[in-house]
Amino acid sequence: MFFIMLIIILAVGFVVQYLFGFIQIKHFTKHYTELRENGKVAIGRRTAIIRSGTLVLFQLNNKNVIEEARYMQGVTVFTKFKNFHGLEGKKINKIQKEDLANYNKLLKRAIIDAQHTFNVVQAGGEIEKIPSPMMKAVKKVNHMFTKKGVKKHGLHS
């Protein structure tokens, strides 16, 4: 009986998580589409497992100048996008550390990621996928059980 209840609770939790994730994706799509209607959009992200994740959207004009900036920062799926100011009128590829002095550490990292992503895409490259927090944890566990840098030798007779 205990295992049946546990399976039901896990299934309900999975469904709820899926629905909230869907709502958050829909929210992201709405903001991305609004900005995309006015030009290119640069996206920066800073993922985290326990701490706040951060996502930035920069709407750029045809000269790659930031016209509008929005960010989403938080731990839960209830986090919403907010406008932020201070980078309007700057070219995305010309943002300097001094321009980021008024922002928190996580937002700075997401802005730098947006700049990096923009530069890679402009050069014709592809953006590497950031593994999910679960995949990062799995890789850490796997790393603990494997020896890096040790050559495997065959059996000697």
Rank of each mutant, 00 (worst) to 15 (best):
V41E: 02
G44T: 05
M135Y: 09
T54P: 05
H143W: 05
D99G: 03
L10T: 13
K80C: 08
A137C: 08
L10Q: 14
I95V: 04
K91L: 00
I49N: 13
Y32K: 01
E37V: 07
N93L: 07
E37G: 04
N64V: 04
R51I: 03
H156A: 11
T117V: 09
H156P: 02
H156L: 15
F58W: 05
K91C: 00
P131Y: 00
M5E: 15
V65H: 02
K80A: 09
L106Y: 12
K80S: 12
G124C: 04
A101K: 13
K91S: 04
V150H: 04
G53Q: 10
F78V: 08
E67I: 13
I50S: 09
I43S: 00
K152Q: 14
M134I: 13
T76V: 01
F58M: 04
T54Q: 04
F22N: 08
M1S: 03
H31M: 05
E67L: 09
H153A: 11
L19P: 06
T33Q: 11
N93E: 10
V120S: 05
A123V: 05
K148D: 06
E34K: 10
A11S: 15
I4A: 11
P133M: 11
R51A: 10
K97V: 09
G39K: 02
K147E: 06
A42W: 01
H156V: 14
I43H: 01
F14K: 12
K152T: 12
R45F: 01
Q24K: 06
T117P: 00
V141T: 10
Y18H: 12
